[in-house]
Design a protein around this nucleic acid. Structure first.
Lengths: 181, 181
DNA sequence: TCTCCCATGTAATTCGTTACATGATTCC
DNA sequence: GGAATCATGTAACGAATTACATGGGAGA
């Protein structure tokens, strides 16, 4: 299972049980808005995950109000989600940074802080290799807008690399804070 | 036509005539690697664009070597591409920055530097409205990885805002350079 | 001969989009 | 009474993915 939507759904359901409507609201109102909140995307995806045994929906009858289905991860679903979270960072993943960041956002809850730090280090290593390959495309005769766009792209990866380092430091700080309290 | 792939293909064909294979190589070897270079994506997309009269493929018979089809924009295709490039920046576009940057990369060639500057200003205005709405989601009790990911997202938009301003200055500098030379 | 690169295509399947359909409750 | 919100679904269509198929040339 490669599909980013299903990955996101598993991550959100791992946090807490939610209904399809709850999930739609997450996509409609939070920074996870890269995903569509349309019912035609979400309900079929939930049914697929349920058919594969990764989630289970429980109908709630709440006197009067329309019934809703609360979905939660099964043991198999939790396992599948952890596998997705653990998978090593590939070269092509750098072309989809939003997906990587979403993965990282769920990292503490799925695999714990130590895995988060490992993820940050692996990401930094990939970035260090990738960034120099981008500069090659900076030709002297490009249109200015093309050049600026490419410069922005490179700057973006460099900023991400700086972020990975500061994020590792934040984990150190958090660990020290734990010991002190 | 909303499809990002078709938008990218029109942009690349507007730069110069290319074959399907040429286009695949662009996606495989340049920073435009967000798009798939698989033949199952590109050839059908080219056929669609040709059926709609936006591009025209000319078969080259090059004694011995396998024939290739060189595609170029038609007048209708150029018009359609300009419309795509001109379209105002919408709120939801901010969730897909890569698509926006790609649009900008083609801006000088499709609409000229004045349009590029207008685009940068419009983008800055949208960002100024959008960034404050993200901070709301920084809750005190988030897992650290989630918090760091969100902080990165916000920092990313802020860096983009700074970039728009420096890019406008680069256009001013370029104009001044033109006058001086 | 074998592999790599050039070059174009199709078929099966899956997934997302748009639009439509339904139905209850709350608030004005 | 009408609009907004809660809540779940389906149908038609379009498009991407993966995998397969084909065929020629160049160089080891």
């Amino acid at each position: 299972m490669q599909a980013p939507l299903e990955h996101a759904l598993l991550g959100l359901l791992q946090q807490q049980p939610r209904s399809g409507y709850d999930l739609r609201k997450v996509f409609a109102t939070t920074p996870m808005g890269t995903f569509s909140d349309s019912p035609g995307a979400i309900y079929p995806a939930l049914h697929r995950l349920e058919r594969r045994g990764l989630i289970r929906g429980q109908i709630q009858d709440r006197g009067g109000l329309r019934r809703r289905r609360l979905f939660r991860l099964t043991a198999a679903g939790l396992h599948a989600f952890r596998l997705l979270q653990e998978r090593p960072i590939a070269r092509d993943d750098l072309a989809h940074l939003e997906a990587l960041m979403l993965r990282f956002a769920f990292m503490d809850q799925s695999l714990g802080p130590a895995a988060s730090v490992r993820f940050l280090r692996a990401l930094a290593a990939e970035l260090a290799v990738h960034i120099p390959t981008l500069r090659v495309h900076l030709a002297p005769d490009m249109p200015l807008s093309a050049r600026l766009a490419l410069e922005h792209g490179i700057g973006d990866y460099k900023a991400l690399l700086r972020w990975t380092r500061s994020a590792v430091l934040r984990y150190r700080g958090a660990a020290k804070g734990d010991r002190l309290s």
